[in-house]
Amino acid sequence: MPIASTDLLDSLMWRYAIKLFDHERKIPTTTWEALEQALVLTPSSYGLQPWTFLVIDDPALRTELRPFSWNQAQITEASHLVVFLARRRIEDRDLDRLIIATAAARGLDPEQLAGYRELMHKDLVAGPRSARIDLWSSNQTYIALGNFMTAAALLGVDTCPIEGFSPPDYDRLLALDGTPYRSCVVCAAGYRSTNDKYSSLAKVRYPLEELIEHR
């Protein structure tokens, strides 16, 4: 069901990158489950979903990650922490996985999707874009990040996207070396502290007329 445009804009105006979370306030289970579903429902090119989302529940692990995150307090103080993982490469088996899932969901014979599979293969596996597939998968994963943050704002949950971290160290601590996935971006989620002095500052955005052009 659609929401009022004013509700959407109010939520986006309210949202900002939290610097200081209330570490005692946790996201309710039902709210978090909805946010996990929002991640699952994120759109992706070809529908390939070249990602995995690690929710770091273990406080000790979050403490280990913090020094490799420029010692940012959000890593340990937020209610939840998500590490967005991107595929290192796209292989034929990834295409087969999507074809099988699509056929099952839509009552099709996988052979009916052979042309679609070939299109993906020529683009992402054998085509020129395969040489920079890491960039492609990162771009896709950032779509998931944006979707997550918007969904969180609509539910009244605060977030802070974090690029200030060491991917190699995250990969080591999360045992990702040798797997199909790598650390791409991090997002903390929870509720802002009343002591966060940045929460009351005005948003700084360039005027719509300078950012949007109609032709």
Results as ranks from 00 to 15, higher is better:
Thr102Gly: 09
Pro43Thr: 02
Leu65His: 10
Asp92Glu: 12
Val157Trp: 12
Leu155Ile: 03
Ser69Ile: 08
Leu39Gln: 00
Val83Asn: 03
Thr159Gly: 06
Arg129Glu: 09
Ala4Lys: 05
Val204Ala: 14
Gly107Leu: 07
Ser79Arg: 08
Thr102His: 14
Leu98Thr: 01
Asp92Val: 05
Arg15Trp: 00
Gln49Ala: 06
Ala114Trp: 02
Ser200Asp: 15
His214Lys: 13
Trp32Ile: 12
Ala103Gln: 06
Leu174Thr: 02
Ala188Asp: 13
Tyr46Ile: 01
Pro2Leu: 15
Leu113Cys: 11
Pro128Val: 11
Ile133Trp: 03
Tyr181Leu: 12
Asp123Val: 05
Ser183Thr: 10
Thr31Met: 05
Lys203Cys: 12
Asp196Phe: 09
Tyr206Thr: 06
Val82Tyr: 02
Pro128Arg: 04
Ile56Asp: 07
Arg106Asp: 15
Leu211Val: 01
Ala131Met: 14
Thr6Met: 10
Leu95Lys: 04
Cys160Lys: 02
Glu111Pro: 03
Ser45Ala: 08
Gly146Leu: 05
Leu108Gly: 11
Tyr116Phe: 14
Phe84His: 02
Asp10Trp: 07
Pro167Glu: 02
Pro128Met: 11
Thr31Lys: 12
Pro167Lys: 09
Arg205His: 10
Glu24Asp: 14
Leu173Glu: 04
Leu41Pro: 00
Trp14Val: 02
Arg97Met: 13
Pro168Trp: 04
Glu111Cys: 12
Ile100Cys: 15
Cys160Gln: 08
Leu95His: 15
Ala38Pro: 00
Asp7Phe: 06
Cys187Ala: 13
Ser44Phe: 00
Glu64Ser: 07
Asp109Ser: 14
Glu163Met: 04
Leu98Gly: 04
Ala101Met: 13
Thr6Phe: 10
Ser183Gln: 00
Thr30Arg: 10
Asp22Met: 02
Pro180Val: 05
Ala144Trp: 01
Thr52Asn: 10
Lys203Asp: 04
Arg93Gln: 14
Ala17Cys: 02
Glu77Cys: 06
Asp196Trp: 08
Val125Phe: 09
Tyr16Thr: 05
